[in-house]
Amino acid sequence: MTNLPSTEFHPRWYRARVSTYWWMGSWRYLLFILRELTSVAVAWSVVLTLLLLRALLNGPEAYSRFMHRMQSPWMIAFNVIAFCFLLLHTITWFNLAPRAMPVRVAGSECPSFWWRLQTMCCGWLRRQRSRGLC
């Protein structure tokens, strides 16, 4: 409990001390922090895109240097890790979005985004098949 000042008309605050590593105590908390940290991978991707644009604007030599750096093993490894984080972000985002904004069809709520996606894909395939395209 922290020692926050109390006044005549206000009692002392009760604030339970929380460990800095509170998110390591449970898998759910760890997943929450990992999900939040996916934003770093998002920022990294944007920085990479901006660097690519700058290299292209600076001419062929700068572009070749940039591509050579991108082909280095440590950069590939870093991008693989970033891509895994981005996939986690995508999956959790698609799982959360229908909960935040539930879609109702004919008065009933659609159960999940994946269900809707599957239905859309099946409908599209059926249309393509009826046209004889696949």
């Binding site: 693989v80 972000h89 985002w93 698609f94």
Partner: peptide, 17 residues
Amino acid sequence: AAVFIPIHLFLFGLAFP
């Protein structure tokens, strides 16, 4: 960030290099 950024990183960060 959820749809386009992973595609971009995959293409420009992994596949093309």
